[in-house]
Simulated assay, not measured.
Amino acid sequence: MGVCKKLVSSFSYSWKKKRDLAEAQKQLKLPEHSLKTECPTRWGSRQAMIDRVLEQHKAIAQVLSSDRKLRHLTLSWQDIDVLEAINKSLSPLVEFTDALSGEKYISVSFLKPTLHLFRNSILEVQEDDTDLVKSIKQKIVDYLNDKYSDPETQELLDMASALDPRFKFKYVNKDNRGSIEDRLTAEMKTMSADVTEDAAAAATPKKKKGLGSFFKVTTDKAAGPPLQQDQAITFELQSYLQTETLDAEEDPLKWWKESQRIYPRLSNLARKYLCIPATSSSSERVFSTSGNIVSCLRSSLKPDHVNRLVFLAKNL
């Protein structure tokens, strides 16, 4: 990787090297692409750099062969084998990292299905894999398993997946389904109480009591409503779980909006969990935007002005 970075930087800072590379690409009939530089804050940039170097390594070798100072950067067959192993292991993950970094659609409920797909398909060891490829794949799987091994994180991902009508309990461990149903039921009860309190708080001002209110007979209904509410919550949850799952390409937010009257409590829970971003990319983008705004020439901006400018930059 060190040789690869030095190789790319030597072409990035020399217009002569870029010119010679373009001529070599025409001679070798290679795509006329420029080399890519790795960016530490951009996901997938290392794989993109490696992929471009492998694509252009013949043209690069031809350019470096005429330069005595940089001839030592020419990739050997061992270097190419290592880069190909890294590229083969990382290239299938690029699309998933890009998809999970989105902001305008639900992403948190995709984590469980994506992890399942990684373990059982994409990162599964193949017969034609080299020892290095097998090692890289196993390291990635071990890292993901360790990263999401926390019970609270697993419970949150299970809740998000269960509230997505495209997946429900499909990717939830069978041993955890009972506890997830219990938590759904408990949170539906809590949310019902909160909705009732909000409705009472937003009610119209109290009217002046009439004489009839003093003769109104109050009955004890404490035993009835809780049981009815429990039955309604159980029926709502079981009815949702028994409905057909949506196609993976359909929009769950649209489905919840259309089904809000049928599942009022679950729709509120879905709003609570499905708004969680799967990655920290959205906040990193805000930091990058603020870094572009608060430059050396604008270092005297007040915090309120910075907040407004960042808000406008992200929402216009």
Rank of each mutant, 00 (worst) to 15 (best):
S121C: 09
S121V: 03
S121T: 06
I122E: 03
I122R: 02
L123A: 08
E124T: 11
E124S: 10
Q126P: 00
Q126N: 15
Q126T: 08
Q126W: 06
E127Q: 13
D128N: 14
D128P: 00
D128T: 12
D128F: 03
D129E: 06
D129M: 11
T130M: 03
D131F: 03
L132G: 00
V133D: 00
K134C: 12
K134S: 08
K134F: 01
K134W: 01
S135K: 15
S135L: 11
I136D: 04
K137W: 05
Q138D: 07
Q138A: 09
Q138G: 04
K139H: 11
K139Q: 14
K139S: 14
K139L: 11
K139Y: 02
K139W: 01
I140F: 05
I140C: 07
V141T: 12
V141G: 04
D142K: 15
D142H: 07
Y143W: 02
Y143P: 00
Y143T: 15
L144F: 10
L144D: 01
N145A: 02
N145W: 01
D146S: 14
D146L: 08
K147N: 05
K147F: 10
K147V: 05
S149L: 02
D150A: 13
P151V: 06
E152Y: 12
E152W: 03
T153Y: 01
T153R: 05
T153Q: 14
M159L: 15
S161E: 13
S161A: 14
D164L: 08
D164Q: 10
D164W: 07
P165H: 08
R166N: 10
R166Y: 12
F167H: 06
K168Q: 09
K168Y: 03
F169S: 07
K170G: 01
K170H: 13
K170W: 02
Y171I: 06
Y171S: 06
V172W: 00
N173Q: 13
N173A: 12
N173W: 03
N173L: 14
N173S: 14
K174R: 11
K174V: 12
K174M: 10
N176P: 00
S179I: 09
S179F: 01
I180M: 11
E181R: 15
E181Q: 13
D182Y: 06
